[in-house]
Nucleic acid binder design. Structure first.
Lengths: 345, 345
DNA sequence: CTGTTAGCGCGTTCAG
DNA sequence: CTGAACGCGCTAACAG
C-alpha cells in the first residue's frame, strides 16, 4: 500500500530529470548509461505511469468503446472474443456498454462513449437510424458498426443474402420444391430481408414448380414454437428458420406432436450455434463465424485509427453445416446409418 | 467536428470564472442566476467535461476492471449482464479483459488493471493462487472474485455443495439407489469437489444400499460424449453430469445407441442452460442464476468502494428444474403425457 | 543527448 | 458566494 510512485520519484532515484524518464518511457532518446539507471529506478519503485495523466496529454486513450445490444447471447460472446483477439495485441482495451436491445439506449451509449475519451467506437447495432448518422458526423471519433449496414457509415457484416442463397441452393439440390421460410420482421434489414430474399432467389430462380411460403415469428425460441402450427399448415417439404433458435422452436413442436424430422418434414436454420448439434435430429444450418466478424471489425477500427487505407474486403466466410435434419428427396432409399457426430464442432 | 469545448469556453460564454463552472458541475455552491447562465452556456457549447482531466484530479475513474476467463460462454454472458445491471445505474463502467482460461494471463490482466486507474477489479477466476493473494495485498484496489473462493479474499460464489445436495436429495426421492457422477478434475474446487461431495452426501447419507460411481471427463460436450461408454458400464439407474454440457454429451451418446432416456436410464445435470430445455428429453437440472451472481458481485464491489459494511450474505438461490430426463422409480406406471414446455425458460 | 519550462483540463484551496 | 492561482502526473518544445 505504498504511496503511488510518479515519474518524479523515479527521476530523483535515478538522478536524472523527469523528462529523461519520460523519454525512456516513450521515444527513448537517451544514453545507454542513464537508460540503465532509469530502468533500475523503475524496477525499484515499481513505478507504472499514471493512465490519466498520460491520456490527458496524448489525447489517446487506447480504449475502444464497445456497444452491445445484449450480453447473454452466444453470438455476442463470439463477436467479443474476436474483437479482443485483435485489439489486445495492439495495446487497446475495450469498454463495454450494453443497450438492452433498445435503440435509444444504444444512442445514449454512443453519446456517452464519445465523451468518455475513447479512441473509437464499435457498435453491434440493433438498427442504424438517422440519429446514428448525426452522432457520427458531430464527432471526430470513428464509429464502426457490425450486424447492420447503412450508407455512409463504416460497417462489417456477414453476407446475409449469400447465406440465404447458400441454403436455397442446397435445399433445391436435395430435391425440395416447397418450402416455408419462418422469418422475422422486415424491419430488420439483415435477417428479415436480405437473408430471406437470398433464399427465395436461389430456391426458386428459373423453376416454375418451386414455392416459398412465409410465416413471421420473433427471434426467440418460444415465439417460433408458437408459430409452428401455422408453419405446419403450409404443407411444405422443408421449413427454413431465419435463425437456429427459430428452427429449434419448430423442431421442438414437431417432436412433441410426433412429427418425424426429417422423414416427414425437413428443417434447416442459420447461425451454426453449437446447440444445433446437440439436438435430435442435429440441425442442418448455415454457420456464421462471428468471431471472425469481430476480428475484422477490430482490424478495420485499427486501420481507421491510423488513417490507413481501409480495405473494403468485408466478406466473412459462411460454412454450410450439413447434419441430419434435411431429407434428400432425390434418393429413393433413406440413409440408414444412425445419427453421427458429424458437424459437431 | 468542432473544437473540443472546455470548461474555459463555457466560463467565457457565461461570463463567469472557470471555477464557478466547476462548482456548478460538482458541489454547486453557486447563485441561482449564474447557475442558469452556466446551464445555458453548457447547453450551447455542448460541453462535456474531459474524462481524463477530471480523473487526474479526483483519482476516481468510475471504471471497474472485469477479468473474464473467456467470452464465448453463456454463463459469462449472464454474469456480465448482472454486473452491468448494477454498475451502470451507479455511474460505473466496466473495462473487460479476457484471460483465455490461463492463470498467468489472468494475473497479468489483474496487474494491468491495477495500473490502468480503475477503481476496483472483478475477477471471474479460473483458480485463485498465492500470486493472486500477493497482488491483492500489494495494491489498495479492491479485488473481488467470483466462481472460486479462497481464504482472505472477497468473493461471491454460488453454493456448489448445496446444489449437489439438492440433486442428491431429488434423485433419492425419485427412488434411485445407484448413480454415476460424471464430473471434472478435483483441481477445480468448486465443481470438481464441492458439487460432487454435496451430491454424494445427500444421495448416500444414512442408507446402505446407495452407491455412487465416478467417471472423470472434461468440461466440454465432446469429452463427455467420449466417456459415455465408461459411464454406461457402471450399470447405474441414473447418471449425473457435473455440468449440463456433460449431461448433454452423454444424452447424445445414449440417443445414438438407441438407449432410451429416461426409460432405460435417467440423466440429470447442473447449470440450467436454456439448451437443456430444447433437447429431447429435456434435461432435469439444478439451475444457477449467474446473472444474480453478477449483480451480487457488483453490489459487493460498490460497498467495498464506499467502505460500507459488507454484508456477508452471499447465498445465490438455486432452482431445481424438473424436466423429462429423470424417471420416477417409485411409481409403478410411467408418465404418459408427451414432452411439454415445462421449465422452458 | 539532456534539463528546464510550459501547459493538457479540471478541481480546489484561498483570499476577497 | 466568487475569482485567481496552483497543481494532479505526464509529455513536448525549447534551449543548452
Amino acid at each position: 500500500m505504498e504511496q503511488k510512485k510518479t515519474i518524479k520519484d523515479v527521476a530523483e532515484l535515478a538522478g536524472v530529470s523527469k523528462s529523461t524518464v519520460s523519454r525512456y518511457l516513450n521515444h527513448g532518446y537517451i544514453s545507454l548509461e542513464k537508460q540503465e539507471r532509469v530502468r533500475r529506478a523503475i524496477e525499484k519503485t515499481g513505478f507504472q505511469s499514471n493512465f490519466f495523466a498520460r491520456r490527458l496529454k496524448t489525447k489517446e486513450s487506447k480504449l475502444i468503446g464497445i456497444v452491445l445490444p445484449r450480453m447473454d447471447s452466444v453470438t455476442v460472446g463470439k463477436l467479443l472474443a474476436g474483437i479482443g483477439r485483435v485489439l489486445e495485441p495492439a495495446g487497446y482495451q475495450g469498454i463495454l456498454l450494453v443497450s438492452q436491445l433498445s435503440v435509444s439506449k444504444e444512442l445514449e451509449n454512443i453519446r456517452n462513449l464519445q465523451q468518455q475519451g475513447v479512441d473509437g467506437i464499435l457498435v453491434d447495432s440493433v438498427g442504424i437510424t438517422r440519429e446514428h448518422i448525426r452522432l457520427g458526423r458531430e464527432s471526430a471519433l470513428p464509429i464502426l458498426y457490425t450486424g447492420q449496414k447503412h450508407e455512409g457509415v463504416h460497417y462489417v457484416k456477414l453476407d446475409d443474402r449469400a447465406a440465404g442463397r447458400m441454403m436455397g441452393a442446397y435445399l433445391r439440390q436435395m430435391g425440395h420444391c416447397r418450402a416455408v421460410f419462418a422469418g422475422v420482421s422486415e424491419r430488420d434489414t439483415a435477417v428479415g430481408i436480405d437473408r430471406k430474399q437470398g433464399f427465395i432467389e436461389a430456391f426458386t430462380e428459373g423453376r416454375r414448380n418451386a414455392r416459398v411460403d412465409f410465416v413471421e415469428t420473433g427471434f426467440d425460441f418460444l415465439s417460433a414454437y408458437n408459430q409452428a402450427e401455422e408453419v405446419r399448415r403450409c404443407q411444405a417439404t422443408v421449413v427454413v428458420g431465419a435463425t437456429d433458435n427459430i428452427s429449434l422452436g419448430i423442431l421442438r413442436y414437431f417432436h412433441e406432436r410426433g412429427i418425424k424430422v426429417p422423414e416427414e418434414i425437413s428443417v434447416a436454420g442459420f447461425g451454426g450455434y453449437e446447440v444445433g448439434a446437440v439436438v435430435y435430429p442435429a440441425l442442418t444450418t448455415v454457420a456464421f463465424d462471428y468471431e471472425l466478424v469481430g476480428m475484422k471489425a477490430a482490424r478495420y477500427m485499427l486501420d481507421l485509427l491510423q488513417n490507413k487505407p481501409v480495405e473494403e474486403c468485408m466478406d466473412v466466410p459462411l460454412f454450410f453445416v450439413e447434419r441430419e435434419s434435411v431429407r434428400n428427396l432425390t434418393k429413393a432409399c433413406e440413409p440408414e446409418q444412425p445419427a453421427s457426430m458429424n458437424g459437431m464442432t
